[in-house]
């Protein structure tokens, strides 16, 4: 895995040549701005909880677009052959692409720090929940990227990669949240529904740091990265 930083660096810089990344970034920041505008008025609590929760919803659609090309494009243009005939392993490639996308994700959310400045200019925000909220957002981002990367490894088509990643994220984030709000749900199903990403995330937004939640995100991210490595290796089994 020594070579993954080299690949990560290349991935990160290639985002800045991609119009789709800019479009996704613009839409994400616009939507966040609208949500913040709604929160940023006299009488509202000086917090970012709403905007954090709003971000998770947006990321369900934004991250698949950012990740769709990571491997699908390598397959379709054939650059995977050039890449894999250099002395790099599958795990170098997967980890490198993951870190590159995570880097761009940090760039994507960093302008939202302006909200923090605005809040502290006009009020006294409680920094604890904001900090844990950002930690949570980064963890959610990492998980979503690993799902997006996995979907991108399965197909040559970027559109298929983006749509399927969005579908998976919708299924693990929004569907459980919607289910858990139903009153007539059996206790077993309720327990399953509460494993949803969105419900797990709300703790972070509230300022609650729970080891269970941390483990949940880290393990799930690792599982998808592992699966992606296996998909890359699978060309050897054919």
């Amino acid at each position: 895995m020594i070579r993954s930083p080299v690949i990560a660096r290349r991935e990160l810089s290639s985002y800045f040549y991609s119009p789709i990344a800019y479009v996704a970034m613009t839409l994400f920041l616009l939507a966040c701005g609208v949500a913040f505008w709604d929160d940023f008025r006299p009488g509202q609590p000086v917090a970012m909880r709403n905007i954090f929760e709003w971000m998770v919803w947006l990321l369900v659609f934004v991250i698949p677009v950012l990740c769709m090309g990571l491997l699908a494009q390598e397959w379709s243009t054939g650059t995977i052959e050039t890449l894999m005939t250099a002395p790099v392993g599958e795990s170098d490639v997967v980890l490198g692409k993951f870190l590159g996308a995570l880097g761009f994700f940090l760039v994507l959310i960093s302008p939202t720090l302006i909200y923090l400045i605005l809040l502290s200019l006009y009020g006294r925000p409680d920094f604890g929940p904001i900090l844990s909220g950002y930690l949570g957002i980064v963890l959610v981002g990492a998980l979503f990227i690993s799902v997006g990367l996995f979907c991108s490894s399965l197909t040559r088509s970027q559109v298929v990669a983006a749509v399927s990643a969005s579908a998976v994220l919708f299924l693990i984030t929004i569907v459980p949240w919607w289910l858990s709000s139903k009153a007539a749900l059996s206790p077993t199903w309720r327990a399953v529904a509460e494993q949803g990403v969105f419900i797990r995330y709300t703790d972070f937004a509230k300022g609650v740091l729970d080891t269970g939640n941390l483990v949940f995100f880290v393990v799930l991210t690792a599982v998808f990265l592992f699966l992606t490595i296996k998909v890359l290796e699978s060309r050897r089994w054919k």
């Binding site: 070579r3 290349r10 290639s14 040549y17 650059t79 052959e81 002395p87």
Partner: peptide, 24 residues
């Protein structure tokens, strides 16, 4: 390789530098 697949968004020198880094 046959069709010479390359990263089209990179510059020539930048690409060679990337390949050199990959080869440590």
């Amino acid at each position: 390789s046959e069709n010479v697949p390359l990263y089209t968004e990179m510059r020539v020198q930048e690409y060679l530098d990337f390949r050199g880094r990959l080869r440590r």
